Simulated assay, not measured.
Amino acid sequence: MGFHTFDPAETERLEDPTRFRFCSREELLQWLPTGREHNLLDIGSGSGFYTDEVAPFVGHVVALDVQAEMHRQYRERGMPDNVAPMTADAGGLPFGDDTFDGAFSTMTFHESATNESMADLYRVLSPGGRVVIVDWSAEGNGEAGPPRSERYDLDRARVFLSDAGFTIVEGSERSETFAIVAEK
């Protein structure tokens, strides 16, 4: 897949509450570690739509995005105090080993999934740390999200995560998306 980024001029689309039909806050929270003692990484945070949903339930969230413009817009909209923006590529995470208790990626896995980025994610998660990925599926109907040719399916996501050393906890294909939970 070719790497691409979301157009920051289109961020109003990212703030649309109908996005919850593809992934809800409750889904993320049931799979992620919660509590003030936990630090999470949001990979491909964009303008913070899902970051805002998770932040009240954990101690700290790093909102990672490759585009500084996304962070600027997030700050303007109002970034929670326990969220720290970080501009970096998912394949070169600027964090120490075992830094995070969990990580999540909502609708952005197709933009940065490589063997290198999955290995780096494994490195920065603490033992027992969970990663939750909900993304547009190549098996989906194609009625929303990027073109089907730019998407991965659940099986390919399993391979990426397994090859990096993760244990798959659960996974499912849905009408437009797949969801996968893995553990270090």
Score class of each variant (00 low, 15 high):
Ser162His: 11
Glu170Thr: 10
Asp65Cys: 15
Ala119Asp: 05
Arg148Thr: 10
Glu143Ala: 14
Met118Phe: 07
Glu139Arg: 14
Pro147Glu: 14
Met118Val: 01
Asp98Tyr: 11
Met70Leu: 14
Gly142Ile: 11
Tyr74Pro: 09
Gln73Thr: 12
Thr114Lys: 08
Ala113Pro: 10
Ala63Met: 11
Ser162Trp: 03
Arg174Met: 03
Glu176Asn: 09
Asp135Arg: 00
Leu93Cys: 08
Ala157Pro: 05
Arg151Glu: 00
Arg72Gln: 14
Asp101Gln: 10
Arg123Gly: 01
Asp98Gln: 14
Leu161Glu: 00
Arg72Cys: 03
Glu139Ile: 00
Arg174Trp: 04
Ser117Glu: 01
Asn115Ile: 00
Val66Met: 15
Asp81Lys: 15
Gly96Lys: 15
Pro146Ile: 10
Pro80Asp: 06
Ser126Gln: 10
Phe95His: 10
Ala103Met: 12
Thr167His: 12
Thr114Cys: 07
Ala90Tyr: 08
Leu125Asn: 00
Val131Gly: 02
Ala144Glu: 13
Val131Arg: 11
Asn115Lys: 11
Ser105Leu: 13
Asn115Thr: 08
Ser175Asn: 09
Tyr152Phe: 13
Arg123Cys: 00
Tyr74Trp: 15
Glu116Ala: 13
Val66Pro: 13
Glu170Ala: 11
Thr99Trp: 02
Gly142Arg: 04
Arg174Gly: 09
Met107Arg: 09
Asp81Arg: 14
Gln67Pro: 14
Ser175Gly: 03
Asp153Val: 08
Ile168His: 05
Thr108Asp: 02
Glu143Ser: 14
Ala113Asp: 06
Gly165Glu: 08
Gly142Asp: 10
Val134Asp: 04
Glu76Leu: 15
Ala84Cys: 05
Ile133Ala: 06
Ala164Met: 02
Arg72Asp: 14
Thr108His: 07
Gly92Glu: 12
Ser172Phe: 04
Gly140Asn: 06
Pro147Ile: 06
Pro94Thr: 07
Asn141Pro: 05
Ala179Tyr: 03
Leu154Met: 09
Asp153Gln: 12
Ser175His: 06
Phe100Arg: 08
Arg130Lys: 11
Asp81Ala: 15
Leu121Gly: 01
Glu150His: 13
Ala103Asp: 11
Ile168Gln: 04
Arg72Phe: 10
Thr87Glu: 14
Asn141Ile: 12
Phe109Lys: 06
Arg158Ala: 06
Glu143Gln: 13
Ala63Trp: 04
Asp135Leu: 06
Met86Pro: 00
His71Asp: 14
Asp153Met: 08
Asn82Lys: 08
Thr177Ser: 11
Ala68Asn: 15
Phe100Val: 11
Pro94Ala: 09
Pro85Gln: 05
Ala138His: 07
Gly129Tyr: 02
Asn82Cys: 10
His71Gly: 12
Ala90Met: 04
Gly91Arg: 07
Thr114Pro: 07
Ile133Thr: 01
Ala63Gly: 14
Gly128Phe: 00
Thr99Gln: 11
Gly129Pro: 01
Ser172Trp: 04
Asn115Gly: 15
Phe109Val: 02
Tyr74Lys: 15
Ala157Trp: 05
Gly96Phe: 07
Glu173Gly: 06
Gly129Gln: 03
Val159Asp: 08
Arg156Ala: 14
Asp65Ala: 15
Val66Gly: 15
Arg174Asp: 06
Gly142Thr: 09
Phe178Gln: 01
Asp155Thr: 11
Val134Cys: 12
Gly128Thr: 01
